[in-house]
Amino acid sequence: MAQQILAFFVLLFFVIRLFFQRNRKEISNNEFVFWLLFWGLASMAIIFIKKIDAFVASLGFSGAGIDVLIYLGVALLFYLVFRLRIKMEKMDKNITKIVRELSLQNKSNKNEGNKR
């Protein structure tokens, strides 16, 4: 019980911070909604931790519910990092394309200038 109360205070800190960030316009509305949902789900997990324990045990896992949540969290983070890597790779390629086109355009502009 004490752990759950402590976890709630931690969550409360992040939710209050989220509202401040929105008021200061540091995050967009979409981001605000996403993180609000995220922390909402986290608080649900804290409230129903016993039910999650029972559910996880019924699936045949030996660990407690919170352990499984951490495993899932790590797996999700891996996936997000991979997605981010792909996105960065694409951005990198696009930057190269722009740099290349600029260098070729500058060259052809100079050539035309020389012809005149």
């Binding site: 740099v99 070729l104 500058n106």
Partner: peptide, 10 residues
């Protein structure tokens, strides 16, 4: 030489 310039190191 013909010089093509990348404005960012790629």
């Amino acid at each position: 030489a013909t010089v093509l310039n990348h404005i960012i190191n790629r």
